[in-house]
Amino acid sequence: MKNTADLRFHAGMDRNAFAKGLKDGLPICMGYIPVSFTFGMMAIEKGLPVWIAMLISMSNFTSAGQFAGTALILSGGAYFEIAVTTFVINIRYMLMSLSLAQKVDSRMTLGQRSLLGFGITDEVFAVGMQQDHLVTASYLAGLIALPYLGWNLGTLMGSTTTGLLPLALQSALGIAIYGMFIAIIIPPARHCKPIAIVILISLLLSCFFRWMPGFGWLSSGWTIILCAVAASAFAAMRYPVDESDEGDVD
């Protein structure tokens, strides 16, 4: 057991790691602005006041779940329906949080974990997992800071300047977030065949659920989980990874 002073020292702020996090978070922040801009626009068009749109973005900090939940609020959905729909869309975060939990600095305190857990979005998770080293609290805080700012700034701009952005630009910005995803998954797939296979299986399954008749009832949240679990489970059994390959040497 380490003593408390030692723990406090390690749990303290590491400026370099925080700065590295900020730097890694900047592209995520830029990618979020158009997405949350769209959210802000939608909320105002449907009659919500600006501060409610802001409250939703600040307290939820998620894309799909927030869009769906807000649509349900507006259409008069029951609390239970709102809870289940949002939860199902967000279950994937459990998988991500579990993966990330294996990669974070074990010295991270309970308070830090509770606070930083709020900021685990798809992109924060993906970038965090790309790190060669253990993810420290300072790094993760830096990584979350700008995306959180961007998410709320975009919502504010979208809800206050509706109509200012040309429609053509709004449409083009819709692809930004997917461009980020591709930038995250393709480079490692070039060097690691199992990763390429995981991506291919997940992609094919996702297309199958999308286009195969009879699966329309499956929400996007469940589809993502099914595809991810099936593809990762296959690869885990077929191509088990040695600890040294994972890059997070203890």
Partner: peptide
């Protein structure tokens, strides 16, 4: 399994 999850999630 957890190592492959990020790639699978983002692909889906």
């Amino acid at each position: 399994f957890l190592y492959y999850v990020p790639y699978a999630v983002l692909a889906a």
